[in-house]
């Protein structure tokens, strides 16, 4: 009962801070709202008793949001944000709406169409060693490919962000 009430409070908080990410006028505020939303998702994992995923969420996104703030500072050069009265949306907004609602439709459709196996007992009792075995032994090659793609994307982002001719 009390868990359910807490669950709804956290869900409302996540939605509110996600709206804050979209509607706030400063990049810095957006990033801070983003970390509140992501931490809320981490708390959701705690409610679902998957501590491992909750910790992964905190570890990855804590660092990721910091990097995001730094990149925002490097790329936009205006930490102060858009002044009031200036529209936040650019001319591309119909396309953004299309992509956003399309993605939401796909996710909601997938979530409702899947038949979930139901209550499988306490997931927190999953042996972490087994997860590691699956990830690094059974899917080792896929894992390495994904890390390589991420690394290339990171290096590319940094090169675009630096935009220096020569030192």
């Amino acid at each position: 009962m009390i868990t359910e009430v807490l669950w709804w409070i956290f869900a409302a908080g996540i939605v509110a801070s996600a709206a804050g990410v979209v509607f706030s006028r400063s990049v810095i505020h957006s990033a801070i709202f983003l970390i509140v939303a992501l931490a809320g998702v981490g708390a959701m994992y705690v409610f679902l008793q998957i501590e491992f995923l909750a910790l992964v969420q905190f570890l990855i996104y804590g660092g990721a949001v910091t990097v995001l703030i730094l990149l925002a500072l490097m790329l936009t050069r205006t930490a102060a944000g858009t002044p009031r009265g200036v529209s936040l949306t650019g001319p591309h907004w119909p396309f953004a709406l299309l992509v956003g609602s399309g993605l939401a439709a796909v996710l909601v459709g997938a979530a409702t169409a899947t038949v979930w196996p139901g209550d499988q007992g306490k997931p927190s009792l999953l042996p972490i060693g087994r997860v590691g075995e699956r990830l690094f032994t059974d899917f080792g090659a896929a894992f390495i490919v994904v890390t390589a793609v991420l690394l290339v994307a990171l290096v590319g982002a940094i090169i675009i962000a630096r935009q220096e001719g020569s030192e």
Partner: peptide, 19 residues
């Protein structure tokens, strides 16, 4: 059971406050 992992997952978060 994940104590060590917990410590460095949580410690990473205080960068956000400093920033």
């Amino acid at each position: 059971t994940l104590g060590l992992f917990y410590v460095f997952a949580i410690l990473g978060l205080n960068i956000v406050g400093i920033l």
